[in-house]
Amino acid sequence: MVQRILLGALLCASASSLLAQEAVFTTGPATTTNPGLVDCGGGSRVSAVGEITSDDGTVWTVPAATNFDSARKAADLFNECDGDELSSVSQLDLESVPLLDAGGSEEFVAYIFADNYFELYVNGVLLAVDPVPFTPFNSNVVRFTADRPLTIAVMMVDWEENLGLGSENNQGKAFHAGDGGFVAQIQDADANSVAITDGNWHAQTFYTAPLTDRDCLVVEGQLRNSSACDETGVDDGTGFSAAHWAIPTDWMAPAFDDSIWPAASIYSNDTVGVDNKTAFTNFKDIFDAAGADAEFIWSSNLVLDNLVLLRTTVE
């Protein structure tokens, strides 16, 4: 009898983990709480932060609650804000890049291009965050020690100008949804590729906007499908909605079960639009390396999903 009860409890727990976590919704713009995390001068977009209350009374930080103010900033490959603009990875003095500790002894190097903002965790340890939350576009290198298996966990944020509405002034429209994208290659101390971004990663979205109609969002189990939602830019989107989901506190931990999340979707360089981004094109020999061609990954909606968590394991 005890065994049956325990088995039933385990089955219920497993089933509940697969049940849909319903979204909660906000409407309209957020209130600005920080006018900008960094000031990159003319030509850059303002990385402001805001707060907004959903229908159930929960207060959400938009576009995301980050560790930007307290965490180490990732070293630069290409960063116009800091004046570090390498033309190729051969110019990088890797020994000058800080060696960060994720609790192990084997050395690794992660090369990253993120649209827009990332936070990198290895084996549950926050190693570094993106030094440029919005634009201009930049790329980074993170050098670290860890023991295998490696749990690589990344928080990705597609930043926004219209806080709480997942949009920016673009293509002639004041409220135009932007897109995201994350590409990375991780190498060992001998410059051998041990991981690239591809469809073996898992991805889950936690903030989707703008929504012209809440009913366009379909949630089934762990699938949060906004493919039927309108992505058209408009002159006035202040009445639009956004969907939010609470982030599990242990999402970056090795023990977290990411198998319940959907597989990451992959996107071409052309779809992400990086052919005119020097922070990417200067390092194609890393990101598009022969035999280790990393792909851009995201959730199933590159445009409307603005806060996406990514995970993979490297044996």
Rank of each mutant, 00 (worst) to 15 (best):
C40H: 01
A20G: 09
S14Y: 15
N34W: 11
R45C: 12
S14A: 14
P29S: 15
A20V: 05
L19R: 09
L7V: 12
G42P: 01
S14T: 15
P29R: 08
P29V: 07
T26G: 10
S44C: 02
S44E: 02
T26V: 10
L19I: 12
S14D: 14
A23P: 11
P29C: 13
G28H: 04
L19Y: 05
G8R: 02
T26K: 05
V24P: 03
A48T: 05
A30G: 05
L11H: 04
N34P: 08
A13Y: 08
G43W: 00
C12R: 12
A30I: 03
T26Q: 12
D39Y: 00
A48D: 02
V38L: 14
L18N: 14
E22Y: 09
T32Q: 06
T26C: 04
S17R: 07
A20R: 02
T26S: 06
S16L: 11
E22H: 11
S14N: 07
G43M: 00
C40T: 06
S47Q: 06
T26L: 08
L18M: 13
G8C: 11
G36I: 10
P29Q: 09
A15C: 13
R45E: 08
G41A: 01
T31K: 08
G36V: 03
T26P: 01
T31W: 03
S16D: 04
S44T: 06
T33W: 14
L11T: 12
L19H: 08
A30S: 05
S16E: 07
T32D: 03
A48W: 01
D39C: 01
P29D: 15
L18C: 14
L19V: 10
T32S: 02
T31C: 07
A30M: 02
A13I: 05
A23D: 13
G8L: 12
G41V: 00
S44H: 02
S44G: 05
A9S: 13
V46P: 00
P35E: 14
C12E: 09
R45V: 07
L19M: 12
T33S: 07
S47T: 03
L18V: 10
T31N: 04
V38A: 10
P35K: 07
A23N: 11
V38M: 09
G36A: 08
G28W: 03
L7C: 15
T27W: 05
G41R: 00
P35F: 11
L7H: 15
P29N: 08
L10W: 08
A48K: 14
S47R: 03
A20C: 02
D39P: 01
L10C: 11
T32G: 02
S16I: 13
S17T: 06
N34M: 09
P35A: 14
E22L: 10
R45Y: 06
A23K: 13
V24A: 03
L19T: 07
G36P: 04
T32M: 06
L18H: 04
G8V: 04
Q21T: 07
A13V: 10
G8F: 12
T31R: 08
A30L: 03
G43N: 00
A48C: 05
C12W: 05
L7R: 10
S16R: 06
C12D: 14
V24W: 01
Q21N: 10
A9Y: 11
V38N: 14
C12G: 07
V46D: 00
V46S: 02
T32E: 12
L19S: 12
D39G: 01
L10P: 03
V38E: 12
G41T: 00
T27Y: 11
G41S: 00
G36D: 04
F25I: 13
